[in-house]
Design a protein around this nucleic acid. Structure first.
Lengths: 194, 194
DNA sequence: CAAATGACAAATATTTATTTTTGTCATTTG
DNA sequence: CAAATGACAAAAATAAATATTTGTCATTTG
């Protein structure tokens, strides 16, 4: 037992086991066995199975929001950045859903169990978008208004394209074209009228 | 047995039984018993239990689309009519979901089983909206474009507020304000720039 | 003595046995 | 003879019996 068991190790292994066995068939004993420890040990690191699953969910949600944070810091006009940010968000979600629908469904079910983690995640995303919108307003590019409310409106108006509850409908080949149409409509609402 | 059994009677009774017993607990025998006939008789009117449920689902979906069809024929500007139509659609869905969440969930599960009925329903709704948008374009009120594509974009941009898969989120008291914000954004995209 | 173990009870989940339901059709009814 | 019936087999759902899992904690290990 030279190596002390770390939180990271546990989460990595839990993810592996979840991917192998699925959300329903994964027990704490399975995870402990994969780590080569007794299941009692896991309870010294996480207070419950729910807490363990929540930690995995949070890590997964962070994998979505982290690459988007980079776009906020990008160069470019606010309009370009807003479009890029939305397209990136939509691409991340839709490609995950398309590549491995079962795994995507599993992570969403996992996240669904941690309502607070999701709320924080949505809040993170809208905050990122708010920063871009604020920039656009300060630069005189976007119409002046409450930046967070505008960002929320843009986020919710595009929900069809990134909300996991609507993933079933992303198989339609028209989906990209539909996003373009919605985006066209939104652009006029954002920009200053000339 | 003086009265001949009609399709309407069967559907009325099926709805009653579904409301009483729920989607999972309702059997063809239950419906037959409520009608005072043998279950074999029902198979002379509907080819399967699925066909019976589909007919109920279609009737329910029609109750949503029918009152909206009236708005299309209303007087008023295209913008007013578009707003009224959306607000009415959203109100119908959200009030049903709020008043009796279980019944709402049941009818949605029922409809979910009949993919084609749903597709037809969505198509109906977008066709209604297309008619209003077309009017707006012909009257020089809306920017000229493919009316159906614009109508689809408006419909999908407001999905958060009427798509039954997102009903869980309608409990938020902010939901009406969020719709207003999205609507504000869309208005600029619809109207001719002055 | 900090970290891990494993025996244990209560809560969950799975399997198996039993019952109900669906859909058909030869027969009955008015 | 059109409409309805009800006995029946196959499929599906439910309930009962069995096994696993979760979470605790007194004990062990290095």
């Amino acid at each position: 037992m030279a190596a002390p068991l770390t939180r990271e190790q546990i989460l990595n292994t839990t993810e592996q086991v979840l991917r192998r066995f699925g959300l329903d068939k994964t027990s704490v004993v399975d995870v402990a066995r994969a780590l080569g420890v007794s299941h009692g040990t896991l309870y010294r690191h996480f207070s419950s199975k729910a807490a363990l699953k929540e930690a995995v969910a949070e890590r997964w949600l962070h994998e979505v929001s982290a690459p988007l944070a980079i776009i906020v810091e990008n160069a470019g006009s606010a309009l370009e950045k807003t479009q890029l940010w939305l397209e990136r968000l939509i691409h991340i979600k839709q490609s995950k859903a398309l590549e491995d629908p079962e795994l995507f469904a599993m992570y969403n079910a996992l996240a669904e169990e941690s309502v607070e983690s999701i709320e924080k995640h949505i809040n993170d995303l809208i905050s990122q978008l708010t920063q871009i919108v604020e920039e656009g307003m300060q630069a005189g590019e976007f119409q002046n208004a409450d930046a967070r409310e505008v960002a929320s409106a843009v986020f919710y108006a595009t929900a069809r394209f990134h909300h996991p509850a609507l993933a079933k409908e992303w198989i339609s080949p028209a989906i990209n074209h539909e996003f373009e149409q919605v985006w066209n409509l939104l652009v006029s609402g954002l920009l200053i009228r000339k």
